[in-house]
Design a protein around this nucleic acid. Structure first.
Lengths: 343, 343
DNA sequence: GAAAAAGAACGAAACGTTTCGCTCTTAAAA
DNA sequence: TTTTAAGAGCGAAACGTTTCGTTCTTTTTC
């Protein structure tokens, strides 16, 4: 059907090995090179990647293991990674968790790795749900490079790369905005207590308070692990009623949207009743009278960097060398909205 | 390194062919079956998909060719397709256009097909940018099944499947909402004139007017082809000033967000000054005082259906049979907001 | 101009499966 | 029982590359 290297060999009268050499950029006599090129054009030859993969034991695919596609942060990262990967000739094998609770997401992640390993991928880029990194042991053992996004896994620090923002700094900056406007009664919402990103951002929040000598009330540092959308909105409403904060900080996109919902249900106005700083651009959409202050992550850069690290790793790996794991921490930026009232 | 079929054969004393047969679900003597299973467990054998692919000339990947990931409609579709595909054992090779103007998107789509064809995919699911379907000729020629999302390509109607909503009906329903509330001066914004989806929705809009005997003013049926974000917002503002509509219909998510921006810049309030119906859930986010009426597409169903059709096609194809192309038209639903004022 | 060194080309053996055509058992039919 | 038919098992040849070790050709060096 499609032309093979054999056809080229036959047509040019050269040997298989020579054709292969040419294809892979080796040196060939000028007249032979011309003959080969002519034949390739005439027969519309394309190398059969599958056959090549069988020999070289790699596949040209990078597995991208992500949570459910529920927010624009994840979406932009995926877009960017995929863009960069293909610019380097790699395909992107996407695997997203089904939406669901933490347990399900963790489980799906295990399946994701198995699935991709079985299909065959050269590397894995992952925004991890299993914070202990159990799911990465198998790929690592198989010598498959892993790059993490958004999180670090201490246990695996010397074996995997990560790309993320300065979470502590970002949360501190966000908190400072409220503090600068005179707010003292601030309630802040974070991911689950077991969540790396959540913990780091909580640290940043508390840092900001301590730095100015304000007390940290642990009741006002709220971790929202393992709650469904409905119950987390309820939880937020409780906190709002109980502490009547003048300022609220929501440490990720999901929480920001839940905070908005809770505020709405509690009939509290932003910024008249409550000042709000959110995350990842939720609440800054067009046509809103009130746009939230929001910490924006440099998604393009995160994606590009992750993919670049992966490509480098892969190149090293192809040469049989080991690649020292990289950790890149990028700064987040503040979107200035009108959701903060000076008091 | 990893165990192969040969190792299993050696260990069990059986022939290669027998092991292969077992793996592919053939009949084997009970005692042999046990022996094989034991060996597989003991050696942790996994079939080498690459080798299998070389023989069977397929890859277990479906290419997903999508526009840039800029809205939740696309995102949800991708999520769902990928979910369904993997449930059937297929990997998802994602390829998204770089963001950019129409020309670029069309070009990227050509590249996407080439890239995926070269990498090797068994089928292609595509939300097409090239409305004439030129990019699909090559895969079709190669016998690779294609399923379209969101659009139909008349020229290829007998060779590709499509899954989409009833665009005419959806636009008509949206328009009816404005009409029912007493609006007569309505300006409606659509994709480019050359865009299938845009044209169908424009039809629906005009249908709704005609059905009640109202005149259709072509100046109020605005196609926004080939404009960047900035200039399309300007265009909308012009129209708003010129015709001072009491009602506006935005026929997709991008346009809805642009309309919101334009309204904001023109200092027009929804619904006090202008009533609005949008698309794809833009403007119904939490924490908005005013939520738009919005036509919602059944993204889950679209994605699942597309992936299912693809899997069926692939199964037929594997048996050497031809699969009659399917066209599925799904209904959209209306989200009832508070963005319409009765007049 | 001969010897040595370097550069190209080559044939054959992998890589790990599936599958074809055949032989050998075993069960069913007579 | 014998004959037939069906069921399992098997070896060998693919699938389209890459790569190793070798031979052949050309260039360099003395």
């Amino acid at each position: 059907m499609a032309a093979t290297i054999k056809d080229i060999a036959r047509r040019t009268g050269l040997g298989l090995a020579t054709i292969s050499k040419y294809i892979n950029g080796g040196n060939v006599l000028p007249k032979n090179r011309e003959a080969i090129e002519e034949a390739i054009r005439a027969l519309d030859f394309k190398v059969n990647e599958t056959a090549r993969n069988l020999k070289t034991r790699h596949t040209g695919y990078v597995g991208l293991v992500m949570p459910a596609l529920t927010n624009s942060f994840i979406m932009q990262i995926i877009q960017q990674i995929q863009l960069q990967l293909r610019a380097n000739g790699y395909g992107t094998a996407l695997y997203c968790s089904a939406p669901g609770n933490e347990e399900i997401r963790r489980q799906t992640e295990l399946e994701a790795i198995d699935f991709l390993l079985q299909k065959g991928v050269d590397g894995i880029i992952n925004l991890p749900q299993n914070e202990d990194g159990v799911h990465l042991l198998k790929p690592l053992e198989l010598g498959i490079p892993v790059t993490l996004i958004d999180k670090q896994i201490p246990e695996l620090a010397d074996r995997v790369s990560s790309v993320m923002i300065d979470n502590v700094g970002a949360a501190r900056a966000a908190t400072d905005e409220l503090l600068n406007a005179g707010h003292r009664n601030i309630v802040a919402f974070f991911h689950g207590e077991t969540n790396y990103t959540g913990r780091r951002r909580a640290e940043g929040f508390m840092d900001a308070l301590r730095q100015r000598g304000y007390p940290v009330d642990s009741e006002r540092v709220v971790f929202m692990g393992g709650l469904g959308r409905g119950s987390s909105v309820d939880r937020i409403r409780e906190k709002l009623r109980q502490y009547q904060p003048t300022g609220v900080f929501a440490a990720n996109s999901g929480l920001t949207s839940r905070v908005l919902e809770a505020l709405e249900l509690e009939d509290l106005r932003v910024p008249d009743n409550v000042s709000v700083v959110g995350f990842d651009g939720v609440g800054i959409e067009d046509g809103r009278r009130i746009k939230l202050y929001s910490m924006l992550q440099p998604t393009e850069q995160i994606g590009t960097t992750a993919a670049q690290i992966m490509t480098e790793q892969l190149h090293f790996w192809a040469k049989g060398e080991v690649f020292p794991p990289q950790v890149r921490t990028l700064p987040a930026t503040l979107f200035v909205g009108n959701s903060i009232r000076r008091i």
